[in-house]
Simulated assay, not measured.
Amino acid sequence: MLGVFRAAGIVTTAVLVVIIAFVAVNGLPVMSLDFIFGWPEGVNAEGGIFPTIVSTLYVTALAMLICTPIAVLAAVYLAEYAKQGRLVTFIRYAADTLSSVPSIVMGLFGYAMFVEAMGFGLSMLSAALALALMMMPIVMRTTEEAIRAVPRYIRWGAYGLGATKWQVVSKIVLPSAFPRIATGIVLAIGRAIGETAVVLYTMGQAINLPLTPLDSGRPMTIHLYQLANEGINMQAAYGTALLLMLMILAFNLFARYISRRSASKSKGN
């Protein structure tokens, strides 16, 4: 059985290596400063992809700003204030269910709610709100587990010194849990960057440099989909895919760095 387990792990790793190698071999020839910082030309199939990079980072940052306060406050309520009962169980069940909703469904809901009903149109704001709904359960559940992992005796010591409930939560619990909370936020950002269906229905496909949240744009995932679907410049599609993979890998490595750093600090203390 140990051999079976090892074989399963090797197969999983080999599949990942093959995918990365395939994209890297086809995408490296087009990678250059002109490709990264240049503007699309012709029918948006030639030239660089700089506007798509800006749109991707713009909408992801906006979604993070919308999602993080709501998710963290909800997690604080569940972990510190709520009495365990049907309401808390239902909230956790709703969060777990929300995290399993397919992205295409979230994109259709975002289009119906934010683009049409609320009148934001195909814009950064509509896409950010839809992405925030997708990121919220990840950040919320990660934050709740991080808060629960803070030792109880730290709270007892603060209460013994006369601190109030909110002082304990804001000054002691949240700072102690911050490394794990940051890890969850970074992982949620990495997932949001790679989403296609959500932004396809809520942001649009305009090649421009967005300035305000109500501007439209084209993220890297949509640009990649258009290039590959139409087959007009497959080399640029592979280059976009490679750069997108590198961005997601960077976010995941940053999350691992934060997690390991927090673990080493805990051991040191």
Rank of each mutant, 00 (worst) to 15 (best):
L2N: 13
G3I: 08
F5Y: 09
G9E: 08
T12Y: 12
T13I: 13
I19G: 04
V30F: 01
V30N: 03
G38Y: 11
E46A: 12
G47T: 05
G48D: 09
I49E: 00
I49G: 07
V59K: 03
T60K: 05
T68N: 10
A75S: 15
Y77F: 12
L78V: 10
A82M: 12
Q84V: 05
T89D: 09
F90E: 00
A95Y: 00
S99V: 00
V101G: 05
V101D: 03
I104W: 05
V105L: 15
G107M: 11
F109A: 13
G110K: 06
Y111L: 15
Y111N: 11
F114T: 03
A117K: 12
A117V: 00
G119I: 05
G121L: 10
L122I: 02
L122F: 15
M124R: 04
A128G: 12
A130T: 11
M140S: 12
R141T: 10
A146Y: 13
I154Q: 13
A158Y: 14
L161M: 15
T164A: 03
V169D: 01
A177L: 04
F178C: 04
P179T: 06
T183F: 11
V186N: 01
R191T: 02
Y201T: 13
I207N: 02
L209H: 01
L211M: 11
L214C: 02
D215A: 14
R218E: 02
M220R: 02
T221E: 07
H223T: 01
Y225W: 14
N229V: 06
E230W: 09
I232K: 13
I232S: 12
A236R: 10
T240I: 09
L243D: 02
L244K: 09
M245N: 08
M245C: 13
L246S: 12
I248E: 07
L253F: 12
Y257F: 07
Y257D: 00
S259N: 09
R260F: 04
S262W: 03
S266N: 02
S266L: 14
